[in-house]
């Protein structure tokens, strides 16, 4: 019997919904007990977990305490989605003036007690596996659970979207004239957007060595307008380690 916990921090709940999509498969496996999952059940117990799935970014002092507690009580901690893995769309604020935003958004900002930045879990604890995406691919959830049962490393891609896109037989939408981040974005989504003739907007976040500079040049050459490149780069995964380092290097 494996004991699973599902936790949520600052996020939209979308990644947790993936659990509802794999209910049948989980039931078939049988040996699974979900003892903590506020979104799904009214009785919850916080004790010891084999795997804890964490959604959402860390954005308050209480969050920091809780994520540390989760780590303490869990054999494996797996972040699910762009918020928990890269800070999420709310981490756009990390590059702006926190005070100004606070005053702009809230009529009485003095009641708000949040961190200046929206953080991925890995800023505070050691994370075993990070599931990318906004939202995640439910196949990856199953892969993590199955791999735990089999005592093996889950098979999560590190290659770019282009490989799975080409495996599907899609022509390159960037060559066809659409802004696409596929070449610097990690695979796993099943190349959904290019399969529908749209450019990838990078919701799975960057590969390990994204060639941002040259892609930016290609965007320019192709005549894609103004700040489009930065806009998509600094959305869902704005505070991803790779982009963060790049940003810190530049500024």
């Amino acid at each position: 019997m494996i004991n699973i916990g599902v936790f949520k921090f600052a996020s939209c709940d979308g990644c947790q919904l993936s659990f509802f999509e794999i209910v049948e498969e989980i039931l078939k496996i049988g040996d699974i007990n979900i003892s903590f999952f506020l979104e799904a059940q009214s009785k919850n117990r916080f004790d010891e977990f084999d795997i804890s799935f964490v959604e959402g970014s860390i954005s308050t002092p209480e969050d920091i305490e809780l994520i540390k507690k989760i780590r303490e009580k869990s054999k494996k901690v797996v972040t699910i989605g762009a918020c928990a893995t890269s800070g999420g769309i709310q981490s756009i604020r990390n590059y702006l003036n926190y005070k100004e935003i606070l005053e702009y958004v809230y009529p009485s900002p003095e009641y708000i007690n949040s961190l200046e930045k929206s953080h991925p879990s890995s800023d505070f604890i050691e994370v075993d596996y990070e599931l990318r995406g906004c939202p995640i691919n439910k196949k990856h959830l199953l892969e993590v659970i199955n791999s735990f049962l089999l005592n093996k490393t889950p098979n999560l891609p590190r290659y770019p979207v282009c490989l799975e896109c080409k495996i599907k037989g899609n022509p390159c939408v960037l060559v066809l004239g659409k802004p696409c981040l596929g070449s610097i974005t990690v695979a796993g989504c099943g190349s959904i957007c290019p399969s529908y003739n749209r450019g990838c907007y990078g919701c799975f976040g960057p590969i390990e060595k994204p060639n941002i500079e040259h892609l930016q040049e290609i965007f320019k050459e192709k005549g894609f307008k103004g700040d489009m490149f930065e806009d998509i780069l600094t959305s869902f995964n704005a505070y991803n380690r790779t982009y963060r380092e790049q940003y810190e290097k530049e500024s």
Partner: peptide
């Protein structure tokens, strides 16, 4: 290497 994205497209086509 500064230009290549290592996107794998060339190998797939």
């Amino acid at each position: 290497g500064k230009r290549c994205f290592a996107c794998t497209s060339c190998t797939q086509v």
